[in-house]
Design a protein around this nucleic acid. Structure first.
Lengths: 145, 145
DNA sequence: CCTTGACTTGAAGTTGACTTCAACTTTTAG
DNA sequence: CTAAAAGTTGAAGTCAACTTCAAGTCAAGG
């Protein structure tokens, strides 16, 4: 596949694909003239990258987790630590979702005045800053707007 | 409370508080000399902001959702749409978490070779780009690294 | 042969969310 | 009274993740 084919299939722009290659996140299997050729496996790689990003990993983190050459085997502890981090994030997101849904349904004139909203808020806030135990990196980033 | 008190209580740096005020996300209740004074309610607001960010909302989005003056009542449809978006994100995050955990436990030499990892990946990838139905904004952003 | 279109490159520009800076004003402690 | 500590400002700087640009290469069609 050439770069435009990959772009078409994945929706990831060609410029991004080149950028990813430069960062070592994906690899082309050679050149056809000067044009890159990609193996089909790159599609899975890109899915994985997008997934990692959705989970809040930086490209550097994605890179270290999914080292493409098999040898420098990935750190399993790091992996489960990341999984834990993501689970924490999920809990918070659920709180936000619940809070939003409540706010959408709540008849109170101001959300500040609604006690159950306050409760949700409080619960969600715990672990965001009131308890500053771990220096957890918490929130993902936002790709192409 | 003065700005440093708020900073201390929330962990949000003073510079960020000023920035948020400029963006209209929080408000000071007046000045003591030239120093801002904040009402205790600002703590809740900040929790909400942090929460929204964790959910992947931009500051602009947080701003429009949580209009502080009660009148321009927030759009309930928008709210539940956002909640849906977040739920989708949660599903994907769960896939990532599962995938990570599996990768941590999997005895296969390469994750590319593990069929169950592939399955998880496939499931997670759906909705990331294979089905380009909705122009859903999907991933949160990363605050203070 | 010459243009068109798809690809290439390195470098520079963009965006969102902050942070840092320089210069200045107040409040507080000695 | 004076000096340090803590607050203020607007402007500029930073960072990650891209995107855009200018300039060039190359294959194919007319």
């Amino acid at each position: 596949m050439d770069i435009s084919e990959v772009a078409k299939r994945t929706g990831v722009p060609a410029s991004t694909l080149r950028y990813y290659e430069k960062r070592g996140l994906i690899h082309s299997v050679g050149r056809d003239g000067l044009r890159r050729r990609f193996a089909p496996g790159v599609l899975d790689q890109l899915a994985l990258i997008a997934l990692g990003q959705a989970a809040g990993l930086s490209l550097d983190e994605v890179h270290t987790m999914l080292s493409p050459n098999g040898e420098p085997n990935i750190d399993r502890q790091l992996l489960s630590a990341k999984a834990d981090e993501i689970d924490t994030l999920i809990k918070r997101l659920r709180a936000v979702s619940d809070g939003l849904r409540h706010a959408a349904a709540c008849p109170a004139p101001s959300h500040a005045a609604c006690p159950s909203f306050q409760k949700l808020l409080k619960a969600a806030a715990l672990g965001i800053f009131n308890t500053q135990a771990a220096p957890t990196r918490k929130a993902p980033r936002r790709p192409r707007a």
